[in-house]
C-alpha cells in the first residue's frame, strides 16, 4: 500500500472512485483505510513479540537453506528413491485431504448445528489426534485396525482386508492426524456464520440439503479451503503415525518424511535436500491457496 493511503483522511479515501477495492469494501460497511489506521496503532511491544514469533518459525527453515547442498541438489532430487517417495507422498496426502473433506464436513456440521449430549467430551475426542504423539497415534491405529486389532481382526477374517503396510493404511494414518485440523476450522466458521441465513432460507422453503449446498457452504467457503489446506499440509508432513501403522516400503508406504529420515542415516546432506522439496511443495500450495481462495 502507498504512503498516500496512510495519510489521507478517511472521508477522502472512501469516496475515491479510482480505488475500486476501497470503495467496494466501504460500501459493505468496512473500510480498509480504517483497518490500516488501526493496525498502525498497534503497541510497539506487541509488534516486536510478533516478529520474534515469526523468527522462531522462519529461522529453522533458513538453517536448512543454509546447509542445503546446492551443487548436488539436482542429482539427489532426481534419484529414483526421492521421486518414488514424492509420488507416494502426493498420493497419500491428497487422498488424506479428500478423506478429511468427505468425512470431516459432515462431522463439522454435526458439531456446529446439532444439540449433542456431551458436546465438550465429543469435541475433545475430535481434537485428540492433535495432541497425541504421532507414534502413539500409529500404535493406537494398530490396536484398532491392525491384524489383531479391535476392528482389524474382523476385517481380516471376513474380507481378507489388512490395512497395515498398505498405501490405504498410510492414507488412514495421515487422515487420522489431519482430520481435526479440518473439522475445527470448518466448525468454527459454521458457528461464526450463525444460523440466521439458514433460518431465513428455511422460511423461504429451502430443503435441508439445499440449505447446506446453497447457503452454508458458500458462506464458509474460505474456511473450507483453509481447512483443506491445513489438513493436507499436516498429512504431507506426517511421519510417526505413518511409520508405526503403515511401515515403510518404497513405492507403497515410504513417503517423503520417511525418506528424509532414512537419508539422515546415510547422508545428512541428502536429508536436507529431500526436506527442501517438502518445504517447496508445501509453500507453493499454501501460498496459492491463500491468494486464490481465502481473503487476504
Amino acid at each position: 500500500m502507498t504512503a498516500d493511503t496512510n495519510n489521507g483522511p478517511v472521508a477522502d479515501k472512501t469516496t475515491d472512485a479510482s480505488n475500486a477495492e476501497n470503495a467496494n469494501i466501504a460500501s459493505n460497511g468496512v473500510s480498509t483505510v480504517e483497518h490500516q489506521h488501526l493496525s498502525s496503532k498497534l503497541p510497539a511491544t506487541l509488534t516486536w513479540v510478533g516478529f520474534v514469533a515469526f523468527a522462531l518459525l522462519a529461522l529453522p527453515v533458513a538453517g536448512l537453506l543454509q546447509r542445503a547442498p546446492w551443487s548436488t541438489l539436482p542429482s539427489i532430487l532426481s534419484s529414483s528413491e526421492v521421486l518414488q517417495a514424492l509420488r507416494v507422498s502426493l498420493i497419500v496426502s491428497l487422498a488424506a485431504a479428500a478423506t478429511c473433506l468427505v468425512l470431516g464436513l459432515p462431522l463439522a456440521f454435526v458439531l456446529a448445528r446439532r444439540r449433542l449430549r456431551f458436546p465438550r467430551l465429543i469435541r475433545a475426542v475430535v481434537m485428540l489426534p492433535m495432541v497425541l504423539p504421532p507414534v502413539v497415534a500409529g500404535t493406537a491405529l494398530l490396536f484398532a485396525l491392525g491384524r489383531r486389532g479391535l476392528v482389524g481382526q474382523w476385517l481380516d477374517n471376513w474380507f481378507g482386508v489388512s490395512l497395515p503396510f498398505t498405501t490405504a493404511g498410510a492414507v488412514i494414518a495421515a487422515a487420522f492426524v489431519a482430520l481435526p485440523f479440518f473439522v475445527v476450522t470448518v466448525e468454527a466458521a459454521l458457528r461464526q456464520a450463525g444460523d440466521e441465513l439458514d433460518e431465513a432460507a428455511a422460511t423461504l422453503g429451502a430443503g435441508a440439503w439445499s440449505r447446506i449446498v446453497h447457503v452454508a457452504l458458500p458462506t464458509i467457503r474460505p474456511a473450507l479451503f483453509a481447512g483443506i489446506g491445513l489438513a493436507w499440509a499436516r498429512a504431507l508432513g506426517e511421519f510417526g503415525a505413518t511409520l508405526t501403522f503403515a511401515g515403510s516400503f518404497g513405492g507403497r508406504t515410504r513417503t517423503l518424511p520417511l525418506e528424509t529420515y532414512l537419508a539422515l542415516e546415510r547422508d545428512p546432506e541428502a536429508a536436507v535436500a529431500v526436506s527442501l522439496i517438502l518445504i517447496a511443495v508445501a509453500l507453493a500450495v499454501l501460498v496459492a491457496l491463500r491468494d486464490r481462495w481465502t481473503p487476504r
Partner: peptide
C-alpha cells in the same frame, strides 16, 4: 519378500511383538 523396511530395529521389534 518384505512388506516393510523399518527405519530402526525397535520399530520392527514392536510390530513383531504386536503380532502385526
Amino acid at each position: 519378500a518384505p512388506d516393510t523396511l523399518e527405519l530402526n530395529v525397535r520399530a520392527l521389534v514392536a510390530k513383531l511383538a504386536l503380532g502385526e
